[in-house]
């Protein structure tokens, strides 16, 4: 991981010196830069997951049709994926590539703040630009808070109030990001939430609370990263036209298609119809035989 971590530590230290030794600002800008650099991967992941989402009704029909015949079911699934030019692993790969990057981003903040003797020792040799050594150790206190320590909430003093605000912001932005980036799922035919919706709603409650707990346990610097990362994530979705703000007010389910930009290009409602344009590349559904002739089903959707 050093080949990712060391440039990140160098970049963070550089930003720290550029922003007049302001570690908070350095972490925020650092997070934005890394999120922008990984944007193509994020976009690919979003496209892929939304395409998969669109195919759900079709997949569900297949499941019902081939109940009990797994082999036939998987053959038909693959055929459907080929037909619409979808790689079923297309959403996982960008996620897998991003994973070490975001772990390194998190590690870079911990290493740069160097809260313990071993961390300070580990910091040596990670700075790839000569002259940045003069910034070491990075100033790790801001607004009376030690960025290397978890928030201490012990009363109504300034540091406690700032600590509470940070934790609340972490919870709120995590919740917001979850809601905004969650594709809407149509309810079951009986109008009740389906199983996937139910699980999603549970996650929407647990995840923000979990991050709130992390904010209380981890260093304040990491909380700043959580907040910045969540906000950038929301903005990225919004700028792509894929943010589902209706979800915030509980109007997401079935009211608006997941990835409205996709829906707009295909002029297809999200209530189970199959899109004709799922990914940028796959403007036309391809035939199962690969010769370019649309299948009957695909043609019908036009």
């Amino acid at each position: 991981m050093d080949f990712i971590l060391n440039p990140f530590v160098t970049l963070l230290t550089f930003l720290y010196s550029v922003f007049a030794n302001n570690m908070l600002l350095a972490i925020v800008v650092f997070t934005i830069i890394v999120r922008l650099l990984t944007y193509p991967l994020t976009a690919q992941q979003m496209r892929s997951s939304q395409a998969m989402q669109k195919l759900q009704p079709e997949l569900k029909k297949l499941q019902e049709k081939h109940k009990g015949d797994r082999e036939k079911m998987s053959q038909e699934q693959m055929r459907l994926y080929r037909e619409y030019g979808i790689n079923p692993l297309g959403g996982c790969l960008p996620l897998l590539i991003q994973f070490p990057i975001f772990i390194s981003l998190y590690q870079a903040i911990i290493h740069s703040l160097a809260a313990t003797p071993m961390q300070l020792l580990d910091l040596s040799g990670r700075l790839l630009i000569p002259g940045l050594d003069s910034n070491i150790p990075l100033k790790n206190t801001m607004l009376g808070l030690n960025l290397t320590q978890p928030p201490v909430i012990s009363g109504f003093d300034l540091s406690s109030i700032v600590g509470i605000v940070l934790v609340v912001l972490v919870v709120a932005t995590t919740w917001l990001q979850f809601k905004v980036t969650m594709p809407a799922q149509p309810p079951a035919e009986d109008g009740k939430p389906n199983q996937a919706q139910s699980m999603t709603q549970s996650m929407g409650t647990i995840m923000p609370l979990m991050y709130g707990f992390f904010a209380l346990s981890f260093s304040i610097g990491i909380s700043v990263y959580f907040i910045a990362s969540n906000i950038v994530g929301i903005l990225q979705y919004a700028l792509m036209g894929r943010a589902n703000f209706g979800n915030i007010f509980g109007r997401g389910g079935g009211a608006k298609a997941p990835g409205s930009a996709v829906a707009a290009t295909s002029s297809t409602p999200a209530n189970g119809a199959v899109p004709t344009k799922i990914q940028g590349k796959a403007s036309k559904p391809r035939a199962a035989n690969g010769k370019g002739k649309p299948t009957e089903r695909a043609s019908k959707t036009k």
Binding site: P193, Q195, S198, Q201, S202, T205, I206
Partner: peptide, 10 residues
């Protein structure tokens, strides 16, 4: 069932 699953998750 949904309620049970949710409670279990939480």
């Amino acid at each position: 069932t949904f309620l049970k699953r949710r409670l279990l998750l939480i």
